[in-house]
Every structure is written in C-alpha cells, then in structure tokens.
Simulated scan of single mutants.
Amino acid sequence: MNLENKIVIVTGSGSGIGAATAKLFSAHEAITIVADINLDNAKKTVSEIVKQGGTATASKVDVTQYDEVEKLIRSTVQTHGKLDVMVNNAGIGGKQQLKTADHTHEDWHNVIAVNQTGVFYCMKTALQQMSKQGHGSIVNVASLAGLKASGNNLSYSASKFAVVGMTKSAALEYARKNIRINAVCPGFTHSALLNQLLASAPNMDEKLKRFIPMGRFGEADEIAEAICWLASENSKFITGQTITLDGGTSL
C-alpha cells in the first residue's frame, strides 16, 4: 500500500481498532494524527508508533463538539499543509442491552452524538478541506449492526445504519471532486465494545461464536488492514462501498 507521507487523522485511535489503524498507517510511512477523547491513551499509541520508527502526534478531541473537530482539522492543515485521509473510527455502545420500548434516553442521545453526529462533523469539516485541495479519502468505521438487524441495540444499530447511508450519499456527491468515501463494517471484533458485550451475560463468548462461521472473533489488526487499503491508491476506483469483515456472520 502506497501511503508514504500521507497526512492521516484517525479518531478514537487511543485503543482498539483505531490504535491498530494508526499504527498500520505509520508502518506504511504515513504521518498520523492520533485523535482521541482520552489524551493519555492517544499519547500511548503515539509512543508505540515512535518506538517502531513512525511519525505521529497526539490530539485530544471530542467528536461530539463541532468546534473541537474544526480545531483538529485546522491545526493539522496548518502544520502539514493538507489532509489526505480521514478515518472516522470514534464510537461507543450503549450502557445497557435493552429492547426498544425500554431503551434509555441517555443511551440514545450519547450513542447518536458520538457515532452519528460525530461522523457527520468529521466528514463535513474534512470534506471542506479536501474540496479545497482537490483530493482526499475518507473511511468511516460502521458495523455489521449497520447492515442487518441487531436486537437490544437500537441506538447503536441506528447510528451505524446512518454511517453507511452518510458514506454512500457523500461518496455520490464528491466522486467527481477526486474524493473517495468508503466504510468498513466489522462484525464481532476484539475491542472495548466487545468486552462490554461479553460481560453482559454468562457464556456470551460461546453464544456469539455460534453465529460466526469462522468460529472466532476478529482482530483489530484485520480491520486496520482494510481501512488502510481503502485509504490508499490501491483502491482508487472504489467509492461509496462497505466492506464487511465478520468471519462470515452475515452469511
């Protein structure tokens, strides 16, 4: 993958899929801005990248705050002169797994704010810059829950279906401007969100794996590979697409 000297922002990259993605971009000699609401976690990711000989900086951002997103992208462009790739990975799950009638207002508003509105803010601001410079690639991290029904998970599912829709709509709008927008849709993948789900009921690990033909959960590094490929010139005729990485679950 040709990513050398690309200027890349990865949100939610203090841990999990985001951290794995930031590290992989850096391994391919991109210059990576590790953005996370938890600055200590972001700095930890940067430290690991630098130890491996990569180039990265940490930035604190709350994607639910438009002014913070604007500041992140503005400072990136002021420092590096451009923004080649925006990876919108920051996301959360609801605190409780409940049916729709019992779904809490708190979970609805918090999850939608991060997973849907946060992606909109990042796309909006990144696209303004990419339109000015005449190129760019955006990769949104959606979910298998954004492609098929996910019970007891309304706000998360709604937000990820929205991410898929926003990806396709924006890709249609900006294809002639040399800007590509795609999404990845991971299935059950080792992460803080999966750990939260596994802790929600006894034997949840075994129950979930029954639905995965490959019989295992995904790894963050495997999702990162797809993200970096979509962001690279290796996929330059691909836009508006979702790549499902789920070990066959959707089958």
Rank of each mutant, 00 (worst) to 15 (best):
L3S: 08
K6N: 13
V8P: 05
G12V: 00
S13M: 06
A20N: 09
A22S: 08
L24N: 10
S26E: 08
H28S: 06
T32L: 09
L39S: 13
D40V: 09
S47A: 14
I49G: 07
V50H: 01
K51D: 12
A56P: 06
V61I: 11
Q65K: 13
D67W: 01
V69D: 09
T79G: 05
V85M: 03
M86Q: 08
G91N: 02
G91A: 13
G94M: 05
T100V: 15
A101I: 05
N110E: 10
I112P: 11
V114S: 03
Q116I: 02
F120C: 08
F120V: 13
Y121N: 15
Q129L: 03
M130L: 13
S131A: 08
N152K: 10
S155N: 10
Y156I: 01
A162I: 04
V163C: 12
T167D: 04
E173H: 14
E173T: 14
Y174D: 01
R180A: 05
A183Y: 08
C185Y: 00
F188V: 06
Q196Y: 00
A199L: 03
A201S: 15
K207Q: 14
R210Y: 04
I212L: 15
M214V: 12
E219D: 11
E222I: 05
L230N: 11
L230T: 04
I238G: 06
T242N: 14
T249N: 09
S250T: 14
